[in-house]
Design a protein around this nucleic acid. Structure first.
Lengths: 346, 346
DNA sequence: CTTGACTAGTCAATCGGTTGACTAAAATTA
DNA sequence: TAATTTTAGTCAACCGATTGACTAGTCAAG
């Protein structure tokens, strides 16, 4: 008699380890050891083959719930994001997913639109659905993170952001990215430059601003930093309209996100300010779309996919008992020069 | 003695149902019934309170692996996507995630870049990590899907695509979307119109083309359909360059994806063709970015988020024994008129 | 021929909840 | 008051895989 009674019709009958064991005429424990390459498994070649054949024939896959229960590891990682539409996050997702899939981890998605956050954390971590958590959110406050996350002291890695005081994180060389942009913008006789940044309570925004200001200082540029409440296209547009309505325009603009850069280009278009002739623009973050804007947008390509991958690596290390560290992706930002900063390309 | 022995230091000690039972001085089964609102649970108010208090105090959450194992349901849905960067997919993800979270399902992400596919399917479905699968992929061939997916006859819902012969699906009114675009474009004295479509072995592409052609026919427009191999920005640009290099330009262009539309605008810019003065453009799919392009891009807003949500609903129905159906989201596409199609806005 | 060391594999407890079957006491009905 | 139903809760068998402990048989060495 089959151990799986066929329930009426619809339910697919999944083979269990016992089914395999019965077919191969061995104990389930041996099957387990063989399929998991347990060094403790000792079996003759013939036996091993019988087992493997049975696995093949039955299409056996270990039930992951049972395995999770016994091993207390889910082989899943939670990924918390605020916004799926932002291309920056797309790249992170890609990197995370890629590395996870290489390492045999699943990626459980968690969005945390407003109000959602506690629920998500509780649901994912507390009921043991994931072995660890990646948080790529810029909107959660440091204090919330400290109280909710570090309290539960689960393995957590922050992506693209450090949280003061604790936890592991992976960031990229934002300062250097900003510096690269400023250096490039300083050419062609640029004297004045304006940077547009997100809110400074976010550590990442701070680093970008710092990189911008130090580079401008070093190059002797007259500079100004504008801080806005958010990072989106509309923010870039609004600031752009305001800035470009003035009598005197800066020679160059640096936006700390590509979304802002896109918005800024739009503002310039609306006010008939010529980019790059009147104002040259560089944005942080690359995205395929930068090539297709008019003018195409010069960007600093941050190693975002790499950041996602290394975040997974770090998280896995922490899950295995490694100590949480704050990691900086060693890949350097690179500049992709396009029309928005290069009069001669136009 | 606590049932959880404290392992050295790092591992967080999670309370089990037995811990709760002990504190509340009841049987674990009663705890289970109470926390799950099992109608079979009968307990005095006092007992119930004791249990709930104990749950609260211990921060108890049912271990999901154990529950999965026993109930044979994971409360997770797999979402298979080809590309996280495409804004179209972002909207689908949003909708799926939202509805899942409302219904208490988790979303397990599966990318299926090349070669990845069998592995992903096997991993997710066969080892019972998800109760059902949503597939939002346009690149997998019908035959692959039929053999790999329908063979295993697991609950699967296709998003934005039908597979001939079987399975459940959710699509939107693509024809109508195309028609809406053509109608709008037919104004302002348009006589000739060209549509740009993805490969016709994809059913969705077919419907869009059909909608386009029927509408053009009905309105007495001279029309032409171009078929390209893919749906991206570069495809739109290439076709655009080719098309706009000719001596005679069509009065209007319809692109069947927003990515193509973006690429087309770029082509026009490169060739100094004025949009909308020389050629008017409408793209299928809306996205916030359409507002920020130059010119801003008129789009047909398909109810994509809704599609994601309804896909989840349908999948859940199928998982609960409902019969798989091919569903068309009833929300109608709407037109958002922007500069690319409206001379008077410029 | 005996002892010891492998080899090839089996046994059984366990992970944490769930759920049908069951019981003792209390409440209701006859 | 006795019989019956309800209430309040308990018991114990799972779900499927993992893993430390154990055993029967084989082989080699002494």
């Amino acid at each position: 008699m089959a151990s799986n009674k066929d329930t009426a019709s619809t339910k697919p009958v999944r083979a269990t380890i016992r089914d395999v064991a019965r077919i191969a005429k061995v104990d389930p424990s041996l099957v387990s050891r063989i399929v998991n390459n347990d060094p403790k498994a000792s079996a003759t070649l013939a036996t091993r083959k019988r087992v493997l054949d049975a696995v093949e024939v039955l299409g056996y896959r270990a039930n992951s719930a049972a395995r999770m229960l016994k091993t207390a590891r889910t082989q899943m990682i939670g990924l918390l994001l605020p916004d799926f539409a932002n291309p920056m996050y797309s790249a992170i997702i890609s990197g995370v997913e890629k590395r996870c899939s290489e390492l045999g981890y699943g990626v459980l998605l968690g969005d945390h639109a407003e109000g959602n956050s506690e629920k998500t954390f509780a649901d994912l971590l507390q009921r043991g659905q994931v072995d660890g958590l990646l948080i790529a959110s810029v909107t959660l406050s440091d204090s919330f993170l400290k109280n909710e996350i570090l309290n539960h002291h689960e393995p957590v890695v922050m992506i693209n952001r450090k949280v003061r005081g604790a936890s592991a994180s992976v960031i990229v060389k934002d300062e250097l990215g900003a510096e690269l942009a400023v250096q490039h913008l300083s050419q062609h006789g640029t004297k004045t430059i304006t940077g547009i940044f997100g809110p400074q309570y976010i550590e990442t925004s701070q680093r970008r601003k710092k990189g911008f200001e130090m580079a401008a200082e070093k190059l002797g540029l007259k500079h100004q930093s504008i801080e806005v409440a958010s990072w989106g296209m509309e923010d870039g547009r609004k600031v752009g309209v305001e800035l470009l309505s003035k009598k005197v325009l800066p020679d160059a603009i640096f936006t700390s996100t590509i979304m802002m850069g896109i918005g800024f280009l739009r503002a310039a278009h609306e006010l008939s300010v010529k980019i790059p002739e009147d104002v040259r623009v560089v944005a942080l973050h690359d995205s395929p779309i930068a090539n297709y804007l008019t003018p195409s947008l010069t960007t600093v390509n941050l190693p975002t996919i790499e950041m996602g991958m290394q975040a997974v690596d770090l998280l896995v290390r922490v899950m295995n008992g490694g100590s949480p560290t704050n990691l900086v992706v060693s890949d350097l930002p690179t500049l992709t020069i396009r029309e928005s900063s290069s009069p001669h390309l136009m």
